[in-house]
């Protein structure tokens, strides 16, 4: 192969996203006659997301699967993708990340940090609450130490939902729950299942407070160094593989939740209105008021 792309992801090989990356690898090899080879590094082997973004920024041929929060330091608009109750379901979020507005963000990103998103339609599921007590509304979360990633949008959302946000590394979550260092965690189902959190929590409450959409981000300079038709092939296949992976995610969530229920976990659908109302102020808090209105208008079309 004349060209090589090294894709890093924090996820493991059984995750639907990884299956999507494998499909991307195979399709791209097929379409370019093996000229563009893709290697996948699961489990963050090439480094933390920020490290790999830095490698891409320095011009290395690496890409990484990241959520919008990681890019918000370069282009703040990306941060809104992690906002509470922004969308419902994959179709709505796909509409946002394939819109002209998103293309404009992507262009801004290239100018700001030299990154480019090949596609941003890699859906990892809705984030729900995993607790050791039943939850029906914000009042039930008072005093609950809930692990969340430490980015402002997550912290403020969890605080608005009534819990005490407690940031810590994902690898420490299982022992921390087991030893009651924390009381609860919020996560998308595939990640929660992969970390065997059903062993250390008893209730899965489907608040769906954040829809976790991620993208495949790489070095713009490296993409520009590819022949034009290879660039097109890579972007098209990346979008197709993202749809494929998101579909797998949707299917797997149904199966995984059934399996968790059979392992003794109480899986509850609740009326999310109280949480939706409690978190409405987060957009204003983070300066996304206008952007939220634009997105709402776009989704209403």
């Amino acid at each position: 192969a004349s060209y090589e792309l090294n894709i890093n992801t924090a996820l493991t090989t059984d995750d639907p996203i990884y299956k999507g990356l494998e499909r991307l690898r195979d399709r791209v090899a097929e379409r370019t006659g093996g000229e563009l080879a893709i290697r996948i590094f699961p489990g963050s082997q090439l480094g933390k997301d920020e490290d790999v973004l830095e490698q891409a920024r320095a011009g290395a041929n690496v890409a990484v699967v990241v959520d919008g929060g990681r890019l918000a330091v370069f282009v703040p608009e990306f941060g809104v993708l992690g906002g509470p109750y922004l969308v419902s379901g994959f179709d709505q979020v796909r509409k946002i990340v394939t819109s002209p507005m998103f293309d404009a963000w992507n262009a801004k990103l290239k100018a700001a940090s030299g990154h480019t998103a090949l596609s941003f339609n890699w859906w990892q599921g809705d984030r729900n609450l995993l607790t050791n007590r039943a939850v029906t509304g914000p009042a039930d979360l008072a005093g609950v130490r809930m692990r969340t990633p430490g980015a402002p949008v997550w912290m403020e959302t969890i605080r608005a939902m009534g819990a005490t946000p407690t940031p810590m590394g994902w690898a420490e979550v299982y022992p921390a729950l087991q030893q009651q260092v924390i009381d609860a965690v919020e996560a998308q189902t595939p990640a929660a299942y992969g970390a065997r959190l059903y062993e250390v929590t008893s209730h899965l409450t489907k608040t769906a407070h954040i829809s976790l959409i991620t993208g495949l981000v790489t070095s713009a300079a490296w993409v520009d160094s590819l022949p034009a038709e290879m660039q097109t092939a890579l972007k098209e296949e990346s979008l197709a593989a993202g749809d494929y992976a998101s579909g797998l995610t949707g299917e797997s969530i149904v199966a995984l939740e059934a399996d968790m229920a059979s392992k003794g976990m109480t899986v509850t659908e609740i009326d999310v209105t109280p949480f939706r109302e409690a978190t409405a102020g987060v957009y204003e808090l983070l300066g996304y008021t206008e952007l939220k209105q634009t997105i709402d208008a776009m989704l209403a079309e």
Binding site: E54, A58, V73, S113, P149, G150, A151, P152, P167
Partner: peptide
Amino acid sequence: RLTLLNAERIYGDSGISY
């Protein structure tokens, strides 16, 4: 060079520069 290249990078969730 690397420090200057990526000065926007935030340290963890703290808000200070990496």
